[in-house]
Simulated scan of single mutants.
Amino acid sequence: MFRSKGNIRLATYFPSVNMKKTKENSNIDSIACLGMFGTLELQPEVNGVVESMVERLKTLSRKSNGQFIAVDLRVDMLEKKGCQGNSACYGPQEIAMFLRKIGFNKDTTIYLTQSRWDNSLDALKDLFPRTYTKESIMPMDKKARFLDMENSEVEKVIDFYMCSESDVFVPAISGLFYANVAGKRIASGKTQILVPAHISGSSASSTDYVSHYVSKKNHFAYSCFC
Rank of each mutant, 00 (worst) to 15 (best):
V168A: 14
L176S: 15
G38L: 08
I28A: 14
V54C: 11
G201F: 12
F14M: 07
I158W: 01
L34F: 08
V195H: 08
R116P: 00
A32D: 11
A123I: 00
I28H: 10
L112C: 02
C226K: 06
M97W: 03
K190G: 02
I173M: 07
S205Q: 07
S16N: 13
C89F: 01
L194I: 02
V168W: 12
F160N: 04
K216W: 04
P92M: 10
N47G: 10
T22Q: 15
P15A: 13
Y178C: 02
M162I: 09
K142S: 03
L121A: 06
Y132S: 05
E135R: 05
V168R: 09
R56V: 04
Y213E: 12
M149G: 07
F14W: 08
T109P: 00
T131D: 05
S223F: 05
T39D: 10
I28E: 15
S152F: 05
I158S: 04
N18F: 06
T108M: 12
L57K: 07
Y90K: 00
E41L: 08
K80L: 00
H219W: 03
K134I: 05
L10C: 09
Q192T: 05
T207Y: 13
T133R: 05
A88R: 13
K156S: 08
V195N: 07
G82C: 01
D167Q: 08
D118V: 02
P44T: 09
V170T: 01
I31P: 00
Q192D: 14
S188N: 07
Y13N: 11
D159L: 03
S205Y: 05
I8S: 10
A11L: 10
P129L: 14
M1C: 09
L78W: 02
I193D: 12
M19Q: 13
K5M: 10
D122Q: 11
R56F: 10
N86I: 00
S4K: 11
G82S: 03
G82E: 04
D141Q: 08
F160G: 02
L60C: 13
S211Y: 10
E41T: 06
E41R: 15
T207M: 15
N7S: 04
E79K: 03
R62E: 15
S115Q: 07
A70C: 14
K190N: 12
K5C: 06
